[in-house]
């Protein structure tokens, strides 16, 4: 049976400086797990995408809270959630299509969901228009000598 080994939950404002902060939190949380360099880079990028979407899309013209949580289990799986109380997504299938964006004039390129999907083993999105969006990403880290499987 897999056991929960560690968890962090934090809430921060939807200002763009916090994109870098979110990546630092990821690095800080994962460092003690001795992640592979590429895996860490993947996860930092996926979280950066999710947090940027909250700032750029969910709280467009407004501001609000972004909730980031990371949970680490004994089988080296990592569960990450990024949630907002913003505008929500009306057509999820469309939003997840590569290169689809609702903000082309702001140099968005519509690759955020594709990147999150390719950098996680599984990604789920729950969204309600007018209430917000929650992204869940699961990624299993490769084994490390420092952390033999339990």
């Amino acid at each position: 049976m897999k056991k929960k080994l560690n968890e962090i939950r934090c809430t921060f404002c939807s200002v763009s400086q916090n994109e870098a902060l979110a990546r630092s939190i990821v690095t800080g949380f994962l460092l003690s797990l001795d992640p592979d360099v590429d895996e860490l880079a993947d996860i930092r990028c996926a979280v950066s995408e999710a947090v940027t979407n909250c700032i750029v899309h969910a709280y467009r013209q407004t501001s609000g809270d972004i909730r980031l949580s990371m949970t680490y289990y004994s089988d080296r799986t990592l569960k990450i959630t990024v949630a907002d109380n913003g505008c929500g997504i009306a057509d999820l299938a469309k939003a997840r299509t590569p290169l689809f964006t609702t903000a082309p004039d702001e140099d968005r390129c519509g690759m955020g969901f594709s990147i999150m999907e390719s950098f996680s083993d599984k990604m789920t999105v729950i969204s309600h228009v007018g209430h917000g969006t929650k992204i869940t990403m699961i990624r299993r880290l490769s084994p490390s000598d420092k952390f033999p499987p339990t």
Binding site: S48, D107, R108, C109
Partner: peptide, 13 residues
């Protein structure tokens, strides 16, 4: 050292 899809957007834009 790090680039996400916003960097891609900068270039493509």
């Amino acid at each position: 050292d790090f680039m996400d899809s916003s960097g891609l957007g900068l270039i493509l834009g």
